[in-house]
Amino acid sequence: MTDPSVTLAASGGQAAAQVRPDAALSLRGLTVSYGEKPAVFSVDAAFPAGEMTAIIGPNGAGKSTLLKAALGVIPRLSGEVSVFGQPIETVRGRIAYVPQRASVDWDFPTTVIDVVMMGLYRQVGLLGRLTGALKARALSCLDRVGMASFADRQIGQLSGGQQQRVFLARALAQDADLYLLDEPFAGVDAATERAIIDVLKSLKSEGKAVVCVHHDLATVRDYFDNVFMINVRRIAEGPVATTFNGETLNATYGGRLAATHIDQLNLVEGA
């Protein structure tokens, strides 16, 4: 049996395999396994600056794992990660990560503004003072996601969408150049989804790189410039316009996407 992923990745012929020097984040041969079973296998990727990339794939395809392993949150079995052409340890300050909401204890004794200030901890160090200017910066980040009036709330009192906005504000406070988001639109209301995408698009226009693990195929075309399709291995990678099609979706999702669903997505392409 031939492996369609290999052909597709090869026939895609993108620049990904050779590491692009201008890539904000590039991965080479990244492999992660839980026990003996690889969750991400020998993945090459290059995520460009000034563009938005969606990482898509079925459940258990290793989307979140890919991000976490790139960041060193979970150990890599092998592979290299470079950020703006440098080893990641030397450029941590230029990376902002927005984890999934579920990863956090929402009864934690902290207020909204305190969570945003966490994004400044790295910059101020252990003993540096969180000055009024820094607090003002945190507030302006909250304002950017429409949450300024919630600054003094305990975080447990927020709705799911509001919590997600606060996480985004924390990432904004880091003033990073590379934003990695794990399912930022999962389980949020429509207004929040719009607020988040507006912020991400403005980041992109500032030349930042934005990479999202994304689950909603219907919005890929509207939101993203590039798509990275993964199912343990890299299936395809490239601009949404050329890469996001029935063939690659089938290869990524196997039989799990109904043909009608793919047709609908292709209709959008024709529009």
């Binding site: 949150v73 901890y121 924390r170």
Partner: peptide, 21 residues
């Protein structure tokens, strides 16, 4: 007191803490 910030990060959100180094 000196380590309150990293300890807060780890206790609140260990993944984010690891990602920020």
């Amino acid at each position: 007191w000196v380590m309150r910030r990293p300890m807060t990060l780890v206790a609140f959100d260990a993944e984010y803490a690891a990602a920020s180094g």
